[in-house]
């Protein structure tokens, strides 16, 4: 099974990378780009287990290492084979 994990900066936290990308999109002529927020995407292969224990495991991974909850939010999807 797989977990897809999305880590993003919390709302209200300045994201200079996102801003630089937004400006670049505007320079390229893409109108109407109001904001860009940059984050991280991780795909974790897991051995088969019950979905709720996989969710628990991934949640602990995020809390402990993958995200810094001072500045980041995370969400994930568990995909069963």
């Amino acid at each position: 099974m797989k977990a897809k994990i999305y880590i993003t900066l919390k709302n209200g936290i300045h994201d200079p990378q996102g801003r630089a990308i937004q400006q670049s999109l505007q320079t390229l002529g893409f109108e109407g780009v109001q904001d860009v927020r940059m984050g991280k995407f991780l795909e974790v292969d897991l051995q088969e287990m019950k979905k709720d224990s996989a969710e628990k495991t991934i949640n602990t991974m995020c809390q402990k290492l993958l995200a810094n909850t001072v500045i980041e939010d995370f969400r994930y999807e568990i995909i069963e084979n």
Partner: peptide
């Protein structure tokens, strides 16, 4: 900061 011995976190420099 990552250990939590000190509060807060680091972001990328404003000017990148």
């Amino acid at each position: 900061l990552e250990t939590g011995l000190l509060p807060g976190a680091m972001l990328r420099n404003t000017e990148l």
